[in-house]
Amino acid sequence: MIFLARIRLAVLIMMLLLGIAAFGPASAQKLNPDGAPNPTASVTSERDLFKQVPRIEGRIDIPDKKASVLIQPAGRTWDYFHEVLLHWGGAIVILGTIVFLGLAYLVIGRIRIAEGRSGTKILRFKAFERFSHWLTAVSFVVLGFTGLNVTFGKILLLPLVGPDNFSDISQVAKYVHNFTSFSFLVGLILISLIFFRDNIFSKVDLEWLKHGGGFIKNKHAPAGRFNLGEKLVYWLSVVAGVAVSVSGFLLLFPFYGTEIAEMQLIQVVHAVVAVLFVALILAHIYIGTLGMEGAFEAMGTGEVDLNWAKEHHDRWLARQLEKERKPGRPLATPAE
Protein backbone atom coordinates (compact mmCIF):
# COMPACT_ATOMS: atom_id res chain seq x y z
CA MET A 1 0.00 0.00 0.00
CA ILE A 2 2.84 2.37 0.81
CA PHE A 3 4.38 1.58 -2.55
CA LEU A 4 1.13 2.41 -4.44
CA ALA A 5 0.73 5.65 -2.52
CA ARG A 6 4.22 6.75 -3.52
CA ILE A 7 3.46 5.94 -7.17
CA ARG A 8 0.29 8.09 -7.09
CA LEU A 9 2.24 10.98 -5.53
CA ALA A 10 4.92 10.72 -8.23
CA VAL A 11 2.25 10.75 -10.96
CA LEU A 12 0.63 13.89 -9.47
CA ILE A 13 3.97 15.67 -9.28
CA MET A 14 4.70 14.79 -12.94
CA MET A 15 1.28 16.10 -14.05
CA LEU A 16 1.87 19.32 -12.11
CA LEU A 17 5.26 19.83 -13.73
CA LEU A 18 3.82 19.18 -17.20
CA GLY A 19 1.05 21.73 -16.57
CA ILE A 20 3.53 24.37 -15.52
CA ALA A 21 5.65 23.65 -18.60
CA ALA A 22 2.63 23.96 -20.91
CA PHE A 23 0.90 27.07 -19.50
CA GLY A 24 3.77 28.89 -17.87
CA PRO A 25 5.20 30.58 -21.03
CA ALA A 26 1.74 31.77 -22.14
CA SER A 27 1.16 33.33 -18.75
CA ALA A 28 4.61 34.84 -18.71
CA GLN A 29 3.89 36.66 -21.97
CA LYS A 30 1.10 38.58 -20.24
CA LEU A 31 3.31 39.68 -17.40
CA ASN A 32 5.80 42.52 -17.29
CA PRO A 33 9.31 41.79 -15.94
CA ASP A 34 8.13 42.99 -12.55
CA GLY A 35 5.29 40.47 -12.55
CA ALA A 36 2.44 42.96 -13.26
CA PRO A 37 -0.18 42.14 -15.94
CA ASN A 38 0.65 43.37 -19.46
CA PRO A 39 -2.46 45.17 -20.86
CA THR A 40 -1.09 45.18 -24.41
CA ALA A 41 -0.63 41.41 -24.60
CA SER A 42 -3.57 40.12 -26.63
CA VAL A 43 -4.23 38.15 -29.75
CA THR A 44 -5.92 41.17 -31.49
CA SER A 45 -4.40 44.67 -31.38
CA GLU A 46 -6.41 47.78 -30.43
CA ARG A 47 -6.14 49.16 -33.96
CA ASP A 48 -7.59 45.96 -35.41
CA LEU A 49 -10.45 46.08 -32.94
CA PHE A 50 -11.26 49.66 -33.99
CA LYS A 51 -11.35 48.58 -37.61
CA GLN A 52 -13.83 45.83 -36.83
CA VAL A 53 -16.09 47.86 -34.53
CA PRO A 54 -16.84 51.56 -35.32
CA ARG A 55 -17.23 52.36 -31.64
CA ILE A 56 -17.18 50.68 -28.24
CA GLU A 57 -20.23 50.89 -25.98
CA GLY A 58 -20.97 49.86 -22.41
CA ARG A 59 -24.08 49.13 -20.40
CA ILE A 60 -26.14 51.94 -18.86
CA ASP A 61 -29.38 52.18 -16.90
CA ILE A 62 -30.52 55.61 -18.18
CA PRO A 63 -32.61 56.06 -21.37
CA ASP A 64 -29.97 58.13 -23.21
CA LYS A 65 -28.18 55.56 -25.37
CA LYS A 66 -25.50 58.08 -26.38
CA ALA A 67 -24.15 57.97 -22.83
CA SER A 68 -23.17 54.34 -23.35
CA VAL A 69 -20.50 55.27 -25.94
CA LEU A 70 -17.09 54.71 -24.36
CA ILE A 71 -14.77 55.05 -27.34
CA GLN A 72 -15.55 56.50 -30.77
CA PRO A 73 -12.52 56.37 -33.08
CA ALA A 74 -14.31 58.59 -35.65
CA GLY A 75 -14.01 61.44 -33.16
CA ARG A 76 -10.27 61.52 -33.81
CA THR A 77 -10.96 62.46 -37.44
CA TRP A 78 -13.21 65.32 -36.31
CA ASP A 79 -10.61 66.47 -33.78
CA TYR A 80 -7.94 66.53 -36.51
CA PHE A 81 -10.21 68.66 -38.68
CA HIS A 82 -11.02 71.10 -35.87
CA GLU A 83 -7.52 71.40 -34.45
CA VAL A 84 -5.43 71.23 -37.65
CA LEU A 85 -7.29 71.52 -40.95
CA LEU A 86 -9.67 74.27 -39.82
CA HIS A 87 -6.82 76.31 -38.34
CA TRP A 88 -4.75 76.19 -41.51
CA GLY A 89 -7.66 76.44 -43.94
CA GLY A 90 -9.35 79.28 -42.08
CA ALA A 91 -6.12 81.25 -41.79
CA ILE A 92 -5.34 80.81 -45.49
CA VAL A 93 -8.83 81.87 -46.61
CA ILE A 94 -9.23 84.89 -44.33
CA LEU A 95 -5.67 86.21 -44.48
CA GLY A 96 -5.55 85.46 -48.21
CA THR A 97 -8.68 87.55 -48.75
CA ILE A 98 -7.22 90.46 -46.77
CA VAL A 99 -3.96 90.31 -48.74
CA PHE A 100 -5.86 90.14 -52.05
CA LEU A 101 -8.00 93.16 -51.16
CA GLY A 102 -4.90 95.05 -50.07
CA LEU A 103 -3.24 94.35 -53.43
CA ALA A 104 -6.41 95.40 -55.23
CA TYR A 105 -6.34 98.72 -53.41
CA LEU A 106 -2.67 99.27 -54.27
CA VAL A 107 -3.12 98.33 -57.96
CA ILE A 108 -6.59 99.70 -58.76
CA GLY A 109 -6.99 102.25 -56.02
CA ARG A 110 -10.28 103.76 -54.98
CA ILE A 111 -12.88 104.02 -57.72
CA ARG A 112 -13.72 107.71 -57.83
CA ILE A 113 -16.80 109.44 -59.20
CA ALA A 114 -15.56 110.27 -62.70
CA GLU A 115 -17.55 113.49 -63.12
CA GLY A 116 -17.16 114.53 -59.49
CA ARG A 117 -20.01 115.12 -57.08
CA SER A 118 -23.02 116.88 -58.57
CA GLY A 119 -24.27 118.31 -55.29
CA THR A 120 -27.65 116.65 -55.80
CA LYS A 121 -28.75 113.63 -53.74
CA ILE A 122 -31.21 110.89 -54.59
CA LEU A 123 -32.81 108.41 -52.19
CA ARG A 124 -31.43 104.89 -52.64
CA PHE A 125 -32.45 103.01 -49.50
CA LYS A 126 -35.36 103.74 -47.17
CA ALA A 127 -34.99 103.74 -43.39
CA PHE A 128 -36.41 100.24 -42.88
CA GLU A 129 -34.16 98.83 -45.61
CA ARG A 130 -31.12 100.32 -43.89
CA PHE A 131 -32.30 99.02 -40.52
CA SER A 132 -32.61 95.49 -41.91
CA HIS A 133 -29.15 95.71 -43.46
CA TRP A 134 -27.44 97.03 -40.31
CA LEU A 135 -29.25 94.56 -38.06
CA THR A 136 -27.84 91.73 -40.17
CA ALA A 137 -24.42 93.37 -40.55
CA VAL A 138 -23.84 94.12 -36.86
CA SER A 139 -25.09 90.68 -35.87
CA PHE A 140 -22.75 89.11 -38.41
CA VAL A 141 -19.72 91.01 -37.09
CA VAL A 142 -20.48 89.93 -33.51
CA LEU A 143 -20.99 86.33 -34.63
CA GLY A 144 -17.80 86.48 -36.67
CA PHE A 145 -15.55 87.65 -33.83
CA THR A 146 -17.07 85.34 -31.21
CA GLY A 147 -17.00 82.42 -33.65
CA LEU A 148 -13.39 83.00 -34.64
CA ASN A 149 -12.53 82.86 -30.94
CA VAL A 150 -13.70 79.24 -30.93
CA THR A 151 -11.31 78.41 -33.78
CA PHE A 152 -8.30 80.64 -33.15
CA GLY A 153 -8.74 81.75 -29.53
CA LYS A 154 -6.45 79.11 -28.02
CA ILE A 155 -3.74 80.04 -30.52
CA LEU A 156 -3.96 83.84 -30.57
CA LEU A 157 -5.78 85.03 -27.45
CA LEU A 158 -4.86 82.47 -24.78
CA PRO A 159 -1.10 83.27 -24.77
CA LEU A 160 -1.87 86.99 -24.40
CA VAL A 161 -4.45 86.99 -21.59
CA GLY A 162 -3.71 83.74 -19.75
CA PRO A 163 -5.93 80.73 -19.08
CA ASP A 164 -8.20 82.31 -16.44
CA ASN A 165 -9.03 85.43 -18.46
CA PHE A 166 -9.35 83.38 -21.64
CA SER A 167 -11.85 81.09 -19.92
CA ASP A 168 -13.98 84.07 -18.83
CA ILE A 169 -13.78 85.73 -22.25
CA SER A 170 -14.68 82.51 -24.06
CA GLN A 171 -17.65 81.85 -21.79
CA VAL A 172 -19.06 85.33 -22.41
CA ALA A 173 -18.32 85.02 -26.14
CA LYS A 174 -20.19 81.72 -26.26
CA TYR A 175 -23.37 83.22 -24.77
CA VAL A 176 -23.11 86.34 -26.95
CA HIS A 177 -22.65 84.14 -30.03
CA ASN A 178 -25.66 82.00 -29.19
CA PHE A 179 -28.08 84.84 -28.49
CA THR A 180 -26.90 87.07 -31.36
CA SER A 181 -27.78 84.27 -33.77
CA PHE A 182 -31.46 85.10 -33.30
CA SER A 183 -31.08 88.75 -34.38
CA PHE A 184 -28.97 87.61 -37.34
CA LEU A 185 -31.72 85.25 -38.45
CA VAL A 186 -34.32 88.02 -38.21
CA GLY A 187 -32.13 90.35 -40.29
CA LEU A 188 -31.43 87.61 -42.82
CA ILE A 189 -35.14 87.00 -43.33
CA LEU A 190 -35.81 90.73 -43.72
CA ILE A 191 -33.13 91.41 -46.34
CA SER A 192 -34.05 88.22 -48.19
CA LEU A 193 -37.63 89.40 -48.57
CA ILE A 194 -37.01 93.13 -49.06
CA PHE A 195 -34.33 92.86 -51.74
CA PHE A 196 -35.45 89.64 -53.44
CA ARG A 197 -37.08 91.16 -56.52
CA ASP A 198 -34.26 93.62 -57.22
CA ASN A 199 -31.70 90.79 -57.16
CA ILE A 200 -33.27 88.61 -59.82
CA PHE A 201 -30.81 88.14 -62.68
CA SER A 202 -31.55 89.95 -65.96
CA LYS A 203 -29.98 90.74 -69.35
CA VAL A 204 -28.39 93.93 -68.10
CA ASP A 205 -26.16 91.81 -65.85
CA LEU A 206 -24.45 90.36 -68.94
CA GLU A 207 -23.83 93.88 -70.24
CA TRP A 208 -22.37 94.83 -66.86
CA LEU A 209 -20.05 91.84 -67.07
CA LYS A 210 -18.98 92.64 -70.64
CA HIS A 211 -18.00 96.14 -69.56
CA GLY A 212 -15.78 94.90 -66.75
CA GLY A 213 -18.19 95.68 -63.95
CA GLY A 214 -17.12 99.30 -63.74
CA PHE A 215 -13.58 98.45 -62.70
CA ILE A 216 -12.17 99.39 -66.12
CA LYS A 217 -11.52 103.09 -66.27
CA ASN A 218 -13.42 105.14 -68.84
CA LYS A 219 -15.76 102.20 -69.50
CA HIS A 220 -19.30 102.58 -68.20
CA ALA A 221 -21.06 99.43 -66.94
CA PRO A 222 -24.86 99.59 -67.07
CA ALA A 223 -26.84 98.23 -64.11
CA GLY A 224 -30.22 98.29 -62.42
CA ARG A 225 -30.73 98.87 -58.72
CA PHE A 226 -28.12 96.17 -58.05
CA ASN A 227 -25.35 95.12 -60.43
CA LEU A 228 -24.25 91.54 -61.05
CA GLY A 229 -21.55 91.69 -58.37
CA GLU A 230 -24.03 92.88 -55.73
CA LYS A 231 -26.53 90.23 -56.80
CA LEU A 232 -23.93 87.50 -56.39
CA VAL A 233 -23.08 88.81 -52.92
CA TYR A 234 -26.80 88.83 -52.09
CA TRP A 235 -27.45 85.24 -53.20
CA LEU A 236 -24.25 83.86 -51.71
CA SER A 237 -25.03 85.64 -48.45
CA VAL A 238 -28.56 84.23 -48.37
CA VAL A 239 -27.37 80.68 -49.06
CA ALA A 240 -24.49 80.93 -46.59
CA GLY A 241 -26.74 82.61 -44.03
CA VAL A 242 -29.29 79.81 -44.24
CA ALA A 243 -26.52 77.18 -43.98
CA VAL A 244 -24.88 78.70 -40.88
CA SER A 245 -28.27 79.39 -39.27
CA VAL A 246 -29.61 75.86 -39.71
CA SER A 247 -26.33 74.22 -38.69
CA GLY A 248 -25.92 76.70 -35.84
CA PHE A 249 -29.33 75.96 -34.34
CA LEU A 250 -28.69 72.23 -34.62
CA LEU A 251 -25.50 72.83 -32.62
CA LEU A 252 -27.35 75.09 -30.20
CA PHE A 253 -29.91 72.34 -29.52
CA PRO A 254 -27.81 69.18 -29.95
CA PHE A 255 -29.01 65.60 -30.42
CA TYR A 256 -32.58 66.46 -31.37
CA GLY A 257 -32.88 63.82 -34.08
CA THR A 258 -29.10 63.66 -34.61
CA GLU A 259 -26.38 61.27 -33.47
CA ILE A 260 -22.76 61.99 -32.50
CA ALA A 261 -21.40 61.45 -36.02
CA GLU A 262 -24.08 63.74 -37.49
CA MET A 263 -23.30 66.44 -34.91
CA GLN A 264 -19.65 66.29 -35.93
CA LEU A 265 -20.61 66.68 -39.61
CA ILE A 266 -22.89 69.62 -38.76
CA GLN A 267 -20.03 71.33 -36.92
CA VAL A 268 -17.76 70.85 -39.94
CA VAL A 269 -20.38 72.39 -42.25
CA HIS A 270 -20.95 75.30 -39.86
CA ALA A 271 -17.24 76.06 -39.56
CA VAL A 272 -16.40 75.80 -43.27
CA VAL A 273 -19.36 77.89 -44.43
CA ALA A 274 -18.70 80.49 -41.72
CA VAL A 275 -15.06 80.94 -42.79
CA LEU A 276 -16.06 81.37 -46.45
CA PHE A 277 -18.87 83.72 -45.39
CA VAL A 278 -16.38 85.91 -43.51
CA ALA A 279 -14.18 86.13 -46.62
CA LEU A 280 -17.19 87.12 -48.75
CA ILE A 281 -18.28 89.86 -46.36
CA LEU A 282 -14.72 91.21 -46.12
CA ALA A 283 -14.83 91.80 -49.88
CA HIS A 284 -18.29 93.37 -49.54
CA ILE A 285 -17.07 95.71 -46.80
CA TYR A 286 -14.04 96.71 -48.86
CA ILE A 287 -16.13 97.68 -51.90
CA GLY A 288 -18.57 99.60 -49.74
CA THR A 289 -15.90 101.63 -47.94
CA LEU A 290 -12.35 101.92 -49.29
CA GLY A 291 -12.98 100.45 -52.73
CA MET A 292 -15.57 102.89 -54.09
CA GLU A 293 -16.22 106.56 -53.45
CA GLY A 294 -19.79 107.33 -52.46
CA ALA A 295 -20.86 103.71 -51.92
CA PHE A 296 -21.03 103.82 -48.11
CA GLU A 297 -23.45 106.76 -48.20
CA ALA A 298 -26.12 104.48 -49.66
CA MET A 299 -26.39 102.53 -46.40
CA GLY A 300 -25.14 105.36 -44.20
CA THR A 301 -27.61 108.15 -44.94
CA GLY A 302 -29.73 106.35 -47.53
CA GLU A 303 -28.96 108.98 -50.19
CA VAL A 304 -26.31 108.91 -52.94
CA ASP A 305 -24.90 111.54 -55.25
CA LEU A 306 -26.66 111.83 -58.61
CA ASN A 307 -23.42 111.38 -60.56
CA TRP A 308 -22.55 108.26 -58.53
CA ALA A 309 -25.92 106.75 -59.35
CA LYS A 310 -25.50 107.68 -63.03
CA GLU A 311 -22.11 105.95 -63.24
CA HIS A 312 -22.94 102.78 -61.32
CA HIS A 313 -26.72 102.25 -61.54
CA ASP A 314 -27.91 104.18 -64.58
CA ARG A 315 -30.96 102.00 -65.37
CA TRP A 316 -32.20 102.30 -61.81
CA LEU A 317 -31.58 106.08 -61.82
CA ALA A 318 -33.59 106.47 -65.03
CA ARG A 319 -36.58 104.74 -63.42
CA GLN A 320 -36.28 106.87 -60.29
CA LEU A 321 -36.15 110.12 -62.28
CA GLU A 322 -39.18 108.96 -64.24
CA LYS A 323 -41.08 108.53 -60.98
CA GLU A 324 -39.95 111.98 -59.89
CA ARG A 325 -41.81 113.55 -62.77
CA LYS A 326 -45.06 112.21 -61.33
CA PRO A 327 -46.89 114.13 -58.58
CA GLY A 328 -45.49 113.51 -55.11
CA ARG A 329 -42.40 114.05 -53.06
CA PRO A 330 -39.30 114.61 -55.21
CA LEU A 331 -36.62 111.94 -54.95
CA ALA A 332 -33.67 114.10 -55.97
CA THR A 333 -32.76 116.87 -53.51
CA PRO A 334 -29.93 119.40 -53.45
CA ALA A 335 -27.12 118.43 -51.11
CA GLU A 336 -26.67 120.64 -48.05
Rank of each mutant, 00 (worst) to 15 (best):
residue 139 S to H: 00
residue 289 T to G: 01
residue 6 R to Q: 14
residue 276 L to H: 10
residue 147 G to W: 04
residue 223 A to V: 00
residue 140 F to W: 07
residue 212 G to D: 02
residue 61 D to M: 13
residue 301 T to Y: 10
residue 282 L to D: 04
residue 97 T to Y: 09
residue 111 I to W: 11
residue 281 I to H: 02
residue 122 I to K: 07
residue 297 E to C: 00
residue 315 R to C: 01
residue 265 L to R: 13
residue 248 G to T: 12
residue 284 H to N: 05
residue 63 P to N: 07
residue 244 V to H: 04
residue 110 R to A: 13
residue 37 P to N: 06
residue 6 R to S: 15
residue 39 P to A: 14
residue 13 I to D: 08
residue 128 F to L: 15
residue 314 D to N: 15
residue 201 F to W: 10
residue 247 S to D: 01
residue 156 L to K: 08
residue 96 G to P: 04
residue 75 G to K: 14
residue 329 R to A: 09
residue 45 S to Y: 05
residue 202 S to N: 09
residue 279 A to W: 03
residue 234 Y to P: 04
residue 138 V to K: 05
residue 199 N to Q: 04
residue 133 H to L: 10
residue 169 I to T: 09
residue 275 V to Y: 05
residue 87 H to A: 10
residue 254 P to I: 10
residue 206 L to E: 07
residue 75 G to F: 09
residue 181 S to N: 11
residue 88 W to N: 07
residue 143 L to I: 00
residue 36 A to M: 09
residue 150 V to T: 08
residue 3 F to L: 15
residue 80 Y to M: 14
residue 165 N to S: 11
residue 5 A to M: 14
residue 184 F to W: 10
residue 147 G to F: 02
residue 157 L to I: 10
residue 326 K to P: 02
residue 319 R to Y: 08
residue 126 K to L: 12
residue 289 T to W: 01
residue 293 E to L: 07
residue 62 I to M: 14
residue 327 P to M: 05
residue 286 Y to Q: 00
residue 64 D to Q: 09
residue 254 P to L: 04
residue 180 T to W: 01
residue 66 K to C: 12
residue 144 G to P: 03
residue 283 A to E: 09
residue 301 T to V: 12
residue 162 G to T: 03
residue 108 I to K: 13
residue 60 I to Y: 06
residue 248 G to A: 11
residue 129 E to P: 05
residue 105 Y to E: 15
residue 237 S to K: 10
residue 265 L to T: 12
residue 247 S to G: 03
residue 132 S to I: 06
residue 217 K to E: 11
residue 151 T to K: 10
residue 74 A to M: 11
residue 237 S to Q: 14
residue 306 L to R: 04
residue 160 L to A: 02
residue 16 L to P: 00
residue 245 S to G: 11
residue 29 Q to R: 14
residue 212 G to M: 01
residue 242 V to A: 11
residue 87 H to V: 15
residue 13 I to Q: 12
residue 3 F to K: 15
residue 259 E to H: 05
residue 309 A to T: 00
residue 270 H to R: 08
residue 224 G to N: 08
residue 274 A to C: 10
residue 315 R to Y: 02
residue 10 A to W: 05
residue 224 G to H: 03
residue 265 L to I: 14
residue 272 V to D: 02
residue 41 A to T: 15
residue 70 L to I: 15
residue 304 V to F: 06
residue 283 A to C: 11
residue 254 P to H: 03
residue 201 F to A: 10
residue 174 K to E: 06
residue 30 K to N: 13
residue 119 G to A: 09
residue 41 A to M: 10
residue 153 G to T: 02
residue 164 D to L: 03
residue 145 F to N: 00
residue 212 G to E: 03
residue 195 F to I: 03
residue 22 A to V: 07
residue 335 A to M: 10
residue 306 L to N: 01
residue 223 A to C: 00
residue 103 L to D: 02
residue 149 N to T: 02
residue 323 K to F: 05
residue 299 M to I: 14
residue 6 R to K: 14
residue 7 I to W: 08
residue 134 W to D: 10
residue 95 L to H: 14
residue 142 V to Q: 03
residue 202 S to C: 06
residue 248 G to W: 09
residue 226 F to G: 00
residue 214 G to V: 07
residue 242 V to G: 07
residue 168 D to A: 01
residue 301 T to K: 14
residue 30 K to D: 12
residue 317 L to K: 07
residue 101 L to P: 00
